[in-house]
Nucleic acid binder design. Structure first.
Length: 211
DNA sequence: AGTGCGATTGACT
DNA sequence: GTCAATCGCACTA
């Protein structure tokens, strides 16, 4: 079995460095791996809740599995904004999904955030999720959105600006980055556009994809 | 205006 | 492992 996974040291989000838009790679695939290790900061009325990104998926230009594939619609317009904006939609009428828009303004593409390692605000996350187990708080796109109380009202928010939801620099990803097919899609299902921190127990998906 | 379908999750056999 | 819940939205007419 692999060595024990070491939790990232807690970091105060009020001193965490905001990601500048210029820091974000323009290319969707580059952005997907770049976001691993970065910290997602959610400013809630009662507390700040943060987590380290450990799993992402790229939905690239011309991707039949991407929501922007058939052009701009009321739902997916945020995917066409400049990179670093939030695209949030409701999946299966039940779970909210957070994406980071990518590429230049006018081009529809983005990166789905699939899993976080919880850092700050664990009590709030437990309350938002209604579960106790640390591993169940933010493992999976719908779960992390619930834990951070992210919903469609945050669609279009600039993640490169301090506000209700933003991105901060994190510790370097010392662990190797794994790559696999994306989860839960039928179109273009074999393309290796999923990225994850190897060895992190907070990564979602079947074990076979996480080697 | 009606229809079909998910970038998932949680409950259950 | 299987499967239903649940609803906004894209698509067709």
């Amino acid at each position: 079995m692999g060595r024990a996974y070491v939790l990232t040291p807690d970091r105060r989000s009020d001193v965490a460095a905001l990601l500048a838009r210029a820091d974000l790679p323009v290319d969707t695939i580059a952005l997907a791996s770049y976001l691993l290790g970065k910290v997602l900061v959610r400013d809630l009325p009662e507390a700040v809740v943060t987590g380290r990104i450990v799993e992402t998926e790229a939905y690239v230009v011309g991707d039949a599995a991407g929501h922007a594939y058939r052009g701009m619609t009321p739902r997916n317009r945020a995917l066409f904004l400049e990179r670093g904006r939030a695209y949030v939609y409701l999946a299966y009428g039940v779970s909210s999904m957070l994406n980071v828009s990518s590429e230049a303004a006018g081009i529809g593409a983005g990166v789905l955030v699939r899993a976080l390692e919880p850092l700050e605000g664990l009590p709030i996350m437990r309350r938002n999720r209604g579960v106790e187990r640390l591993l169940d708080l933010t493992r999976g796109p719908g779960r992390l959105a619930a834990a951070l109380r992210i919903d469609r009202s945050l669609d279009g928010v600039d993640l490169c600006q301090r506000g209700p939801l933003w991105l901060a620099h994190g510790a370097e990803v010392a662990d190797a980055i794994g790559q696999s097919a994306r989860i839960g899609i039928s179109q273009d299902a074999d393309r290796p556009l999923r990225f994850y921190v190897k060895g992190s127990p907070f990564v979602s998906g079947p074990k076979a994809l996480n080697v």
